[in-house]
Amino acid sequence: MPQKRVLHLLNGQALYNFYKTTHFLDGECMIPFNEAMCYGETCSNIFSHNFIQIRANVHHVTTEQYSEITLKPLQRLFRKNFSHLTLWFDEDMFCQINILTILAWLDQNDYKGAIDLHIIGEKFERKESFSLKVEGYAEMYNQVLVNKTLPKHIFPNPLKRGIELYLNYLDKDSDLMRFITKYQDVSEEELVTKLIVEFQHYGLGDVQYLEMIRSSREG
């Protein structure tokens, strides 16, 4: 019986480095997804030339830099030389929208293998696990990230919560934007720190928060 080839896709470079250092999944094939799909524009055809150009502009890097940071670590995913995919992601909005993007790409590429999703906590411990099939996630990705609409049925629940947060967090009356407006007189650096502490369920980083603060204050 042929051995099951498992690929572990992690929620970013920090988790990848942590698992390497602690020898978790030692000997297993691990790759990081270095993106922030919850921020900025995108297009339907994931990882296409157009997608790369759009996402490079979002991150203020060249397409070559984007390919080096985001696409190069994903080569084992692109080669599809595995029969089982395991995802290790946080439950925050940031990670959930990244999960949706990966599932949608797999759906676009007619992936039929098994998928396990492990939701991890602050100390990278496993909190929840789900078994998934990719059918329908490409359509869901288009509804959410391209058309900014809420699908009727979303599985699993962490993804549902992440999508609901994503569709509203940039609205001027969202809790996040009201917080930024409330602290107009606080320095950018101090406000970024406050936001990271206060809104951990969004999972955004200093780069995204800085852009949001500056956009709010310019507007």
Score class of each variant (00 low, 15 high):
residue 32 P to V: 08
residue 28 E to H: 07
residue 46 I to E: 11
residue 77 L to E: 00
residue 62 T to G: 15
residue 89 F to Y: 12
residue 24 F to Y: 15
residue 33 F to P: 15
residue 64 E to V: 13
residue 65 Q to A: 07
residue 71 L to V: 01
residue 41 E to L: 13
residue 80 K to T: 09
residue 67 S to K: 06
residue 43 C to Y: 04
residue 62 T to Q: 06
residue 51 F to I: 06
residue 83 S to M: 02
residue 32 P to Y: 12
residue 31 I to D: 03
residue 51 F to V: 09
residue 61 V to P: 13
residue 88 W to G: 00
residue 32 P to F: 06
residue 37 M to Y: 14
residue 67 S to E: 02
residue 71 L to I: 04
residue 91 E to M: 00
residue 31 I to N: 12
residue 34 N to T: 14
residue 63 T to Y: 05
residue 31 I to Q: 08
residue 52 I to E: 15
residue 58 V to R: 15
residue 39 Y to A: 15
residue 67 S to N: 10
residue 92 D to L: 06
residue 59 H to F: 07
residue 71 L to W: 00
residue 73 P to M: 14
residue 73 P to Y: 10
residue 72 K to R: 05
residue 35 E to T: 14
residue 57 N to I: 07
residue 87 L to P: 02
residue 40 G to P: 05
residue 39 Y to M: 14
residue 75 Q to M: 06
residue 47 F to A: 03
residue 29 C to E: 08
residue 90 D to A: 15
residue 33 F to Y: 02
residue 52 I to F: 10
residue 77 L to F: 12
residue 76 R to G: 05
residue 34 N to P: 11
residue 59 H to W: 13
residue 94 F to A: 02
residue 88 W to M: 01
residue 25 L to W: 11
residue 28 E to N: 15
residue 77 L to P: 10
residue 54 I to K: 15
residue 48 S to P: 10
residue 34 N to W: 04
residue 71 L to R: 01
residue 76 R to E: 03
residue 92 D to S: 08
residue 62 T to D: 08
residue 25 L to F: 07
residue 90 D to N: 10
residue 67 S to H: 06
residue 63 T to M: 07
residue 39 Y to F: 07
residue 62 T to S: 13
residue 68 E to G: 06
residue 28 E to A: 15
residue 59 H to C: 11
residue 26 D to W: 12
residue 49 H to D: 12
residue 31 I to F: 07
residue 24 F to K: 03
residue 89 F to Q: 12
residue 68 E to Q: 09
residue 90 D to G: 09
residue 73 P to D: 12
residue 30 M to N: 05
residue 39 Y to T: 02
residue 64 E to N: 11
residue 65 Q to D: 12
residue 84 H to P: 10
residue 45 N to Q: 02
residue 72 K to V: 00
residue 45 N to C: 04
residue 64 E to L: 05
residue 73 P to I: 05
residue 36 A to I: 05
residue 45 N to E: 09
residue 34 N to Q: 04
residue 87 L to H: 12
residue 83 S to G: 05
residue 88 W to S: 03
residue 42 T to D: 08
residue 47 F to C: 08
residue 78 F to L: 01
residue 71 L to D: 00
residue 47 F to P: 08
residue 60 H to D: 09
residue 40 G to T: 11
residue 80 K to P: 00
residue 27 G to V: 13
residue 55 R to G: 15
residue 25 L to N: 12
residue 28 E to R: 09
residue 37 M to E: 14
residue 43 C to V: 03
residue 78 F to M: 01
residue 32 P to I: 11
residue 27 G to I: 12
residue 28 E to F: 04
